[in-house]
Lab assay of single mutants.
Amino acid sequence: NKFNKELQWATWEIFNLPNLNEEQVKAFIDSLRDDPSQSANLLAEAKKLNDAQA
């Protein structure tokens, strides 16, 4: 299933962003679980936040 692979990839990527704190990671993962179809958008937002906090 396409969404499942995207969800797994986005989850792994978010867990490995070095500049997000635990609460931010949890919030993004919760959002992914709530709406897996938004995984690409949520990953992009997480990466933006990660870069901003570098």
Rank of each mutant, 00 (worst) to 15 (best):
P18N: 06
E45H: 10
S37Q: 08
V25G: 02
F28L: 04
F15K: 14
L7P: 03
E23H: 13
Q38K: 11
L32T: 02
T11M: 15
N4A: 07
N4Y: 13
D30Q: 14
N50E: 01
D34W: 10
N41T: 13
R33H: 15
L49A: 04
I29G: 02
K47I: 07
I29S: 03
N41L: 13
A44T: 08
W12R: 07
K47Q: 06
V25T: 07
L43M: 06
F28V: 02
A40F: 13
K48I: 09
Q53P: 04
L17I: 01
F3G: 12
A46R: 00
N21A: 08
E6Q: 06
W12D: 05
W9A: 13
R33V: 14
A54L: 10
S39L: 06
E22T: 10
K2P: 14
L7R: 01
I29N: 02
E6D: 10
R33D: 09
F3A: 13
K2M: 15
L43V: 15
Q24H: 02
A46E: 01
S31D: 06
Q38S: 07
K2F: 11
L49G: 00
S31L: 09
A10V: 13
D35H: 09
E6L: 14
E23P: 05
S37G: 08
A44N: 08
E22W: 13
D51V: 08
E23N: 12
N4M: 08
V25I: 08
N21S: 12
F3V: 12
N19T: 03
A44I: 13
L43H: 02
A52D: 09
L7E: 06
I29H: 03
A10Q: 03
N16A: 12
K2Y: 12
K47V: 08
D35P: 01
A10D: 02
A10T: 07
E45V: 11
W9E: 12
K26D: 05
D34G: 08
S31H: 11
A27T: 14
E6K: 04
N16V: 04
L42S: 02
Q8R: 05
A54S: 10
A52S: 10
D34A: 14
S31M: 14
K48A: 10
S37R: 06
F28H: 01
Q53M: 11
L42H: 04
L32K: 00
L32W: 02
V25R: 11
A27D: 07
F15W: 13
Q53H: 05
Q24T: 03
K2W: 15
R33A: 14
N4V: 07
N19H: 10
Q8N: 06
A27K: 11
N16M: 10
N41P: 15
I29W: 05
E45Y: 13
N19D: 05
P36G: 03
Q38D: 07
D34Q: 13
L42P: 00
K26G: 06
Q8I: 11
A46F: 03
L43E: 01
A44V: 08
A52Q: 10
L20E: 00
Q8M: 13
N16K: 11
L20S: 00
L32V: 05
F3S: 10
N50G: 02
F3M: 09
D51R: 12
A40W: 15
S31N: 10
F15G: 11
P18Q: 10
K26N: 11
E6S: 05
K5M: 04
E6H: 07
N19W: 12
S37D: 06
K26V: 06
Q24S: 02
A54W: 09
K5G: 09
R33I: 15
P36V: 06
A52Y: 10
E13P: 01
L17D: 00
S39Q: 05
A52E: 11
E23D: 12
V25K: 15
D35G: 03
K48T: 08
L42Q: 03
E22M: 15
A40I: 10
K5L: 04
S31K: 11
A46Y: 04
L20H: 00
L7D: 04
Q53A: 07
T11N: 03
R33Y: 15
K5T: 13
E13F: 15
D34I: 11
N41R: 14
L43W: 03
F15H: 10
F28Y: 07
I14L: 07
K5Q: 15
Q24K: 01
L49W: 04
I14M: 04
A40M: 14
I14V: 05
L43T: 05
P36E: 03
R33M: 15
L7Y: 07
S37L: 06
T11V: 12
D34H: 10
A10I: 14
L49F: 05
K48V: 07
N41A: 12
K48H: 08
E13N: 03
N4D: 15
D51F: 12
F28I: 05
D51E: 12
S39E: 03
K26W: 15
S37N: 06
I14H: 02
S39K: 04
A44S: 10
K48S: 11
S37F: 07
S37M: 07
N50A: 03
D30G: 11
E45N: 09
N21V: 06
N41S: 14
E23G: 09
R33T: 13
L43A: 04
E13K: 12
F15I: 09
D30W: 11
D34P: 02
W9H: 09
D35W: 06
P36A: 04
P36R: 02
L17M: 13
N19L: 04
N1M: 02
L42E: 01
E22H: 12
E6V: 09
L17P: 00
L43P: 00
T11W: 06
A46P: 00
